[in-house]
Design a protein around this nucleic acid. Structure first.
Length: 257
DNA sequence: ATGCCGTGGAAACCACGA
């Protein structure tokens, strides 16, 4: 089973690229972030025609997450992260596909830091950490994937010294990510490629992609009971070079059945 | 060090992203 995550940066503006990528790689399950579209403008017909069933939680202009599957319709478990009824951002959706629980997340960016946006990020992280603990306790097989907006280590940044004050790399944020992996979650890309430079995002400007000035911020976390099923993981980085690309590239893992 | 690019929505600029 191949599972992918892709921050599309606008699902309608990105539709030709998304459909071409789906056609070429045919992942079984896909988590999308930054739909930037309200629920009624999600391109469900085009996605169905491409062979995928979908659930989504949109929002006008910002955020928005979706889970696509060509193994049957995802069974929605929740569409908000618990812990704050006043948080109206569409940043989390969770479904079961066959026996696997898949959580799709778009963690807040948090800049500028310090400030209210950074506080929101840390608070979201705290709520997420409580939820991930409950998922471990449930004993279910779980994959959590999406745009975490965190570079976990210096290996994940093209120039770490430039990012130490940034909300994606500040010590508090790296510690928050580590707190989750310390619960027993496996960072799938790092597990299979412990020393490799791996990026999933390149800025649109300053020729960041051409210079390979990238960041690894899109991640897969595996619950302990499926860690041994991980057989491959990678980044479809060439998609970042396509015309009208997102600033993120798709990231994927393969689990044996 | 920097929103220099890109997206969406409203309005012909602005918010936001990482």
């Amino acid at each position: 089973m191949k599972i992918a995550t892709y921050n599309v940066n606008g699902v309608n503006g990105r539709l030709p690229v998304l459909l071409r990528w789906l056609g070429e790689k045919a992942p079984d399950v896909v988590c999308l972030q930054e739909l930037k579209a309200p629920n009624e403008k999600f391109p469900v017909k085009a996605i169905n025609d491409a062979g995928y069933q979908a659930i989504w939680h949109g929002q006008k202009s910002w955020n928005g997450v979706a889970i696509l599957s060509r193994l049957g319709t995802p069974k929605e478990m929740r569409r908000v992260l618990p812990g704050d009824p006043e948080d109206l951002h569409s940043r989390y959706i969770e479904a079961t596909i066959n026996d696997l629980l898949v959580g799709c997340l778009y963690l807040p960016n948090g800049n500028p830091a310090p400030g209210p946006k950074f506080d929101y990020k840390l608070n979201w992280f705290k709520r997420f950490t409580e939820h991930t603990a409950s998922l471990i306790a449930s004993g279910k097989p779980v994959v959590l994937t999406g745009d975490f907006n965190v570079m976990p280590t210096e290996l994940d940044v093209y120039k770490p010294e430039r990012w130490v004050e940034d909300a994606l790399f500040r010590p508090e944020v790296r510690a928050a990510f580590k707190k989750i992996t310390d619960q027993g979650w496996t960072d799938a890309l790092r597990k299979l490629h412990p020393h490799e430079k791996i990026y999933t995002f390149w800025d649109y400007f300053r020729n960041a992609y051409g210079r390979d000035a990238g960041l690894r911020i899109d991640h897969f976390l595996l619950s302990p009971n499926i860690e041994k099923k991980l057989v491959a993981a990678g980044v479809d980085r060439e998609i970042r070079g396509w015309e009208k690309s997102s600033d993120h590239a798709p990231v994927w893992i393969e689990l044996k059945d």
